[in-house]
Design a protein around this nucleic acid. Structure first.
Length: 496
RNA sequence: GCCCCCAUCGUCUAGAGGCCUAGGACGCCACCCUUUCAAGGUGGAGAUCAGGGGUUCGAAUCCCCUUGGGGGUACCA
């Protein structure tokens, strides 16, 4: 197989799903690793559920992940580019009609006039006999005359594909040899609805053939349907592509990952502040490993090492804790400019939500980076970490202000004394190095543990018990605000 | 029900007959560092390799059965 052509074929019936993103990633990795072509095709034949908004969401999400495709629509609603355009199934209807016509002409498919009531009755009776569901073939041998009669009665037939008999076998790149007796396929299956719209199993084959797809890399949930596709490729006279069925991403209970039991929308992860490098890194390592002990890898590094035949067979539970760890690893690897750029939207979101009152400048963020970069599990955690810097006043109460080992009076005395010490450093530059020695000296002079004094100050100026290092925090706040917040805390504690 | 697929620490995985008294990572627990929180460092607990039969001098690795789990079975994709 000279040139590899692979595709991701999402349905715009929902926002970009973790599973779709992972399948797209593996297709991308394979294509880039072998120097092939990565195609994006939108399977929008489920008109009732497909929307342009979902289409946009999916394209945006794939772009965000950095999985650029070589052929397909670039922007939602816009014409697609590539030698096999269009890449949107609803714009390819004539090709399905032509393929259907050929199958009909060759008698490889036939019109079926069964009503849904009849089919339902068939299903019920087979179930009563404890037999697997299967189309009974009522319309399989209708004469041209019988068909005409039904058409005259105003009945419109769906098109059924003749399954025939025999065993379909194929060598799956991840699973090895798979053999399925077509007798288990459920009989002749519908490829075109009575209203003329084509069904998934049919469009996917017509398009994969037309787009000269050489490797179909998709989720394991399609494994059982693969014989139907192979039969169709053969009936249409096309070469059958290679298949690679990826293990599923699972809910914690090991069922197929679903919206109901897990967070599945890529959007949600983006909104929480996961970075693309981490998502890509994590997803690549679900069902595949380098075989070495390397774990933190960039998209190019993964591409270089990727090998479809090394992909696992068993499904993998989506582990958010591990994703968070990888996210932290990547946040720490980001450059200052890069991190500031990516943090900004999250700070803006905090502003809009009223959690902070103004936006920090780039310079302020840059000076904060040394103490926040290693403390951010996600970009979205920025507000929790240092949001106290960007509000005018703090909400602190007595209980919160008193350190564990201290009592009310000690805390009051400690904060008053600390206020004086800090006010006294006015002659020098307000820097961390200048404040620590005098405050330590104060603690020693009064017989306090420095940690307790620091904790009281920390809560007074930040409203929290967990913050970046205290003296860096004081500098970030600035002398005036530090003194004002200490005064306020003293007021809160002072007997009135 | 029927068909298909799968099975190594809680989780992600390394392992392609002897290197395995099963390695790494996340998480967890200690300790170190330390003003809190992180990060980092060190150490620890954690898997009779689902169970049972084979094959072999030797099996986590090969074969069979059982069990468990998952997927598919639409005029959804």
């Amino acid at each position: 197989m000279a040139h590899h052509r692979v595709r991701i074929a999402p349905s715009p019936t929902g926002p970009l799903h973790i599973g779709t993103a992972r399948t797209a990633l593996f297709n991308y990795l394979h294509a880039r690793h072998v120097g092939g072509t990565f195609i994006l095709r939108l399977e929008d034949t489920d008109v009732a559920r497909s929307t342009l908004e979902f289409e946009k969401d999916i394209l945006d999400g794939l772009h965000w992940l950095g999985l650029e495709w070589d052929e397909g629509p670039e922007v939602a609603g816009e014409p697609a580019r590539g030698p096999h355009a269009p890449y949107r199934q609803m714009e390819r209807l004539p090709s399905y009609a032509a393929a259907a016509q050929r199958l009909l002409a060759d008698d490889l498919a036939y019109p079926c006039y069964c009503t849904s009531a009849e089919l339902e009755a068939d299903r019920a009776s087979r179930e009563a006999e404890r037999l697997p569901p299967r189309y009974v073939g009522r319309c399989a041998a209708l004469t041209p005359e019988e068909r005409r009669t039904r058409e005259r009665d105003g009945r419109r037939g769906a098109l059924r594909f003749r399954v025939g008999e025999g065993v379909v076998a194929f060598d799956d790149i991840v699973r090895g040899r798979v053999e399925i007796d077509v007798a288990n396929l459920g009989g002749d299956f519908v490829i075109v609805r009575a209203d003329g719209t084509p069904l998934y199993h049919f469009t996917v084959v017509v398009d994969d053939a037309a787009m000269e797809i050489t490797h179909v890399i998709r989720g394991e949930d399609h494994l059982s349907n693969t014989p139907k596709h192979i039969l169709l490729f053969q009936a249409l006279g096309h070469a059958v592509p290679r298949f690679a069925h990826l293990p599923l991403i699972l809910n914690p209970d090991r069922s197929k990952m679903s919206k109901r039991k897990s967070q599945t929308a890529i959007d949600d992860y983006i909104a929480q502040g996961f970075v693309r490098e981490a998502l890509v890194n994590y997803l690549a390592l679900l069902g595949w490993a380098t075989g070495t002990e390397e774990e933190i890898l960039s998209l190019p590094e993964i591409t270089e090492r990727f090998d479809l035949s090394q992909v696992h067979k068993g499904g993998a539970i989506f582990d958010r804790e591990r994703l968070e760890w990888i996210n932290g690893q990547w946040i720490r690897r980001l450059s200052a400019d890069e991190l500031i750029d990516r943090l900004r939207p999250f700070i803006e979101a905090d502003l809009v939500a009223g959690r902070i009152e103004w936006m920090p400048s780039d310079d302020e963020l840059r000076s904060l980076l040394p103490v926040i970069q290693e403390r951010l599990p996600t970009l979205g955690a920025i507000g929790d970490l240092v949001g106290f810097l960007w509000v005018a006043e703090l909400d602190v109460d007595t209980a919160m202000l008193i350190p564990k080992r201290w009592d009310h009076a000690t805390t009051l005395a400690g904060l008053e004394a600390a206020r004086e010490v800090i006010a006294d450093v006015r002659d020098v530059v307000f820097e961390a190095d200048e404040m620590e020695p005098p405050l330590r000296a104060l603690a020693e002079a009064r017989g306090w543990k420095a940690g307790d004094l620091f904790m009281a100050i920390r809560v007074a100026v930040t409203g929290r018990t967990a913050t970046p290092p205290l003296f860096d925090t004081l500098v970030a706040l600035g002398r005036d605000r530090v003194l004002a917040r200490l005064d306020h805390a003293v007021e809160v504690l002072a007997p009135s």
